[in-house]
């Protein structure tokens, strides 16, 4: 194995294991929201995009309607479309391989692949596949572990799981707040969501908050 490949492999696997381990938090959140262990595992196998999965079970946990849960998850999934547009010319795959590539097109596989750009197209492809398939493996294993664990624990509030879920969202949000404008958007979104909470059915304030993103993104900065 060449040094070039080894460096890509190291980058990919370290991301795959670290991110995959967050699957414990998803498995626990999903069971706390009322999904079964089987359903939690199917989420990770079939939906396989962390933020959307957390959003779907989060809306259900807060008493929202099924449509709100699906809409929140889909809105968070739109960024994978943009990732696919970036990755398709790099990967150049057809048929079944393209379906698999699409399924593992997530934050991490795209991020590692793009970071390999100085090492060439071959490294970008390896980074995408190793990270994507690696996260898939670990994310699913850890989801199962988290779901089993939460299932054994019983009442979510008694173990702090009801606070662990919003804390996990905050942990996912935090590294994205890289500028004052983004921090402002986050603060505005929180106040907006709290402000409209008494006015709407549970779950809808989360969807309504996309208005803040539209307003903030409309003007050229």
């Amino acid at each position: 194995m060449s040094d070039l490949t080894r460096a890509t492999l190291r980058d990919s696997l370290s991301v795959a294991v670290t991110v995959g381990a967050y699957g414990v938090a998803f498995g626990a959140a999903s069971v706390a929201a009322g999904f079964s262990v089987l359903q939690s595992c199917l989420f990770s196998l079939l939906t396989f995009t962390g933020a959307s999965q957390f959003a779907a079970v989060g809306v259900v946990a807060s008493g929202g309607a099924a449509a709100s849960a699906v809409a929140a998850a889909a809105l968070l999934g739109t960024r994978n479309t943009l990732y696919g547009i970036q990755m398709a010319p790099v990967l150049h795959v057809e048929g079944l391989r393209r379906m698999v590539a699409a399924h593992v097109t997530i934050d991490e596989s795209t991020g590692v692949s793009l970071s390999q750009a100085p090492r060439g197209t071959k490294a970008m492809r390896e980074g995408f596949w190793i990270t994507g398939l690696g996260v898939f493996l670990f994310w699913n294993l850890f989801t199962f572990a988290g779901a089993l664990g939460a299932n054994a624990l019983g009442n979510p509030a008694s173990w702090g799981l009801d606070a662990a879920v919003p804390a996990a969202f905050l942990g996912l949000l935090w590294p994205r707040l890289t500028s004052n404008v983004l921090r402002l958007v986050a603060m505005a979104s929180m106040f907006f969501a709290l402000g409209v909470t008494p006015l709407m059915r549970a779950g809808l304030p989360i969807i309504a908050t996309t208005v803040v993103a539209v307003i903030a993104g409309w003007r050229r900065r």
Binding site: A51, L182, A186, I206, A208
Partner: peptide, 9 residues
């Protein structure tokens, strides 16, 4: 911006 708005909410 959508992920930031949704995660905040």
């Amino acid at each position: 911006l959508i992920p930031i708005a949704l995660l905040s909410a």
